[in-house]
Design a protein around this nucleic acid. Structure first.
Lengths: 208, 208
DNA sequence: GGCCGCATCGTCCGAAAGGACGACTCCCCA
DNA sequence: TGGGGAGTCGTCCTTTCGGACGATGCGGCC
């Protein structure tokens, strides 16, 4: 019997997953979690074989699904974590894999794929959706410059339409610094204007 | 007994909704649909009291949930349509309401809110999530300048990071014309830079 | 027939953005 | 212990963008 913890902030998705796995004889949902913290707590208490983890929690707090994954994987006798998400952005995938996820699935996947992935994870195998696998490979080939957290911070403000001086004011630095960050961002992303940088960052999944 | 049709492209969400409504004595899910077309067909065959309709179908074909809503509402003895979506973009809300939806709910809404909305819809009342209601009102107050198709065309290119001269080349017009379009876009959106215009257009749902 | 929105083009000018240097601290890691 | 990346700041200069005019032609609408 595979003991499973389901972590997702949407009640509808949770009950959908529970209903889905309820049809399988060899899978038992032993706990559900609506927040990353709950997910970790449930894992500690229930000691499941597999955790099914959403990446986008609570709308505002992004990437905390990856945090929870990291914390769970750091536990003794840690269960395998399957990441389940709506989007297939490069950054999310990479983040999840780095955090120790052994699988990455999209929410629009057919149910049988989900169930197969849970069984595979329980057996210690890695299961990636085909779309995801090809993405990862292409990502490996094209090396990719990741932005620093400060650079992302700047880029987010720029993306919201703020000017250099406004960004400088927001971050309590000089305009020169902002321009310097932007110059680095441009070379890393291979563009030469703020708007192009925002667009590129969006397609790469750096920005939403 | 309220007869309900559930339309959503995600199997997980569908089974979640079915499981949810299965607990209610007075609601019966008579059909489920994975595409807008299926939703219309199911409505014709089953003649339900309420249709629960997702807006984003199939990842690529956007806004077809609104189309299905329109077609359903055009039927004789049309059922009430409740729109259920992940996002609360102004354009989506407005589109859904125009299409004849009698309610607009977010997927992260608590289950009881969902159930209450279905009962309200069956009774012919309009149920909007509080967030949505306030949005609609603010939208009513601030009249809203819609962009012309040419302006949107320009803005899309700008959003992809093209410069004025590049946009001019793409559209076979002079740079002056592009700047003129942009100036109009700025005043209509109440901003004063291309990046801010892109951001504003995105939050208004004009751009994706 | 006149008004208005849309699309097109133009000039002039100031402000913002971007490129090209250099320079100074941290801090991490080889 | 030394190199390198990140973050901070500076100057000088060019390009781009945006604002403020104006002007034309076309189509719809009262």
């Amino acid at each position: 019997m595979i003991r499973l913890v389901v972590a997702d902030d949407h009640p509808i998705v949770r009950s959908g997953l529970i209903a889905l796995f309820g049809l399988e004889d060899d899978i038992e949902v032993v706990a559900e979690a609506a927040t990353p913290d709950e997910a970790v707590a449930a894992t500690v208490h229930e000691n499941p074989d597999v955790v099914l983890m959403d990446l986008q929690f609570g709308a505002r707090s992004r990437a905390t699904g990856a945090d929870a994954t990291r914390r769970i994987r750091a536990l003794d006798a840690a269960p395998y974590v399957l990441v389940l998400t709506n989007y297939d952005s490069d950054a999310d995938i990479l983040g999840a894999v780095e955090a120790g996820a052994s699988g990455y699935l999209l929410k629009d996947a057919p149910p049988h794929e989900l169930i197969a992935a849970v069984r595979a994870a329980a057996a210690g195998e890695s299961a990636l959706a085909p779309v995801i696998a090809s993405r990862l490979l292409s990502r490996m080939r094209a090396p990719q410059a990741s932005l620093s957290s400060r650079e992302i911070e700047v880029l987010e403000l720029v993306a919201s339409g703020r000017s250099n001086t406004e960004v400088a004011g927001d971050l309590f630095v000089s305009e020169t610094t902002v321009k310097s960050h932007l110059a680095h961002i441009f070379t890393k992303l291979g563009v030469s204007s703020r708007t192009a940088a925002v667009s590129e960052a969006r397609t790469r999944g750096i920005l939403r």
